[in-house]
Design a binder for these strands. Structure first.
Length: 380
DNA sequence: CCTTCCCGCCAGACA
DNA sequence: TGTCTGGCGGGAAGG
């Protein structure tokens, strides 16, 4: 398979542009593209190969984002190479479940040994940690005959999975009152209580960066800095999945602000694959459309900080900038066919409209779900 | 320098 | 066995 790895080599013979630029290959961006590519009606299932080729990335990267997306309910594994698109509407439930699970595992008394709280000050001394490797095997149900295989192995591998790490990371926000945490602390907290080698932490942090990037692109979290210390940290923006019998209340959302999502469409490919093989459309990760709405939702358990952010349908953006016709640099050998189905070329307004309808739809289902409390099946 | 984090090797899991 | 998954950590880009 060759495919040597020449990195900074820079200008490839033939590529007259794009020296390389690491940022255009970030997971966050990839996630945005992924979302905007599949968040449209008609999409039922997603093939990994298809995604990889459409997004112009290696498969390995698809696994990365797919895993975290699944952790949040947006996707569900259907079969080998195949995922089911659940949509944003599945997020609330997923988060709610995560939250419950988090509390359950932790037990009511939210405190553990937590001797070292490393790092310096953290505003609220309330440190209710949670360290556990929720290893709820029995993953995947779907009529899997299998004769209850002990499968003792594999557990170890799975408890280190990106997906699980994502869930635990999210639980940190949902089940704890601290809503700003540095990846370093998160890594230490999520580290299975033992082995705090500088190396293991290092690795964990690397993963958390990956996760944080895709979570950020969906506006679940946001990168900031600790008030005093300039330490970078992440803050939760997503809805605070409230649970239990709390039929429809709070979680209101008046109207959404219409805002233009600036985006540009760049076609870059700085990879040497086969000859004409690249169709990397790069979209801007932006476009929150998050409706921050203060609503007095009753507090759960600890009545302390009652902040409830609401975030709009996460989502992607791929609205071409007004007044700029994107396709003009000549068509290359890219497969516009696939892109064509994904984007409506020429008609910006149309695309915009389309996008909006999707938003509305996603939002609507999401809202009704939260309000109506309709049960839904979640992954595994 | 330090932080962020992409790339892809290669080992488990699975067909 | 071959293919699919996806840990893992080197080391380069970015600041």
């Amino acid at each position: 398979m060759a495919l040597p790895s020449a990195y900074a080599a820079g200008v490839e013979s033939g590529s007259k542009d794009i020296p390389y630029c690491r940022k255009q290959k970030s997971l966050g961006l990839l996630c945005s593209n992924f979302l905007s590519l599949y968040n449209r009606e008609g999409v039922e299932t997603i093939g990994l190969d298809d995604a990889a080729s459409r997004l112009g990335v290696e498969r390995r990267r698809i696994y990365d984002i797919v895993n975290v997306l699944e952790s949040v309910g947006i996707l569900a594994r259907k079969a080998k190479n195949r995922y089911t698109w659940k949509g944003f509407g599945a997020i609330p439930k997923a988060l709610e479940d995560l939250k419950k699970e988090g509390f359950r595992e932790n037990g009511p008394a939210a405190d553990t040994s937590c001797s070292e709280k490393v790092s310096d000050d953290d505003e609220d001394e309330m440190c209710s940690d949670m360290n556990n490797l929720s290893q709820n095997d029995k993953s995947d149900s779907t009529s899997a005959p299998k004769s209850a295989v002990p499968s003792k192995s594999g557990e170890n591998r799975k408890e280190k999975s990106l997906g699980l790490l994502t869930q635990n990371f999210v639980k940190l926000f949902l089940c704890t009152d601290m809503d700003m945490i540095s990846l370093d602390d998160a890594a230490k907290l999520l580290l299975g209580d033992g082995k705090h080698t500088s190396m293991t932490t290092r690795t964990k942090v690397r993963r958390l960066y990956d996760i944080a990037n895709v979570l950020s692109s969906m506006k679940f979290i946001e990168k900031t800095h600790h008030p005093e210390t300039r330490k970078p940290a992440f803050r939760w923006l997503g809805l605070n999945a409230k649970s239990d019998n709390g039929p429809a209340d709070s979680l209101v959302l008046s109207d959404s602000k219409r805002r233009m999502f600036g985006t540009d469409l760049t076609n870059t490919s700085a990879k040497r694959f086969k000859v004409g093989e690249d169709a990397a459309q790069v979209l801007k990760p932006h476009n929150p459309m998050r409706v921050k709405h203060e609503a007095e939702n009753e507090v759960e358990r600890t009545r302390s900080a009652v902040k409830s952010y609401q975030f709009g349908p996460f989502a992607p953006a791929n609205v071409p900038k007004v007044g700029v016709s994107q396709d003009e640099k000549g068509k290359q050998v890219v497969d516009w066919e696939s892109l064509a189905s994904a984007y409506r070329p020429q008609y910006h307004n149309q695309a915009l409209k389309d996008l909006f309808s999707h938003y509305v739809e996603a939002w609507k289902s999401w809202y009704s779900e939260v309000a109506g409390k309709s049960p839904i099946q979640l992954m595994s």
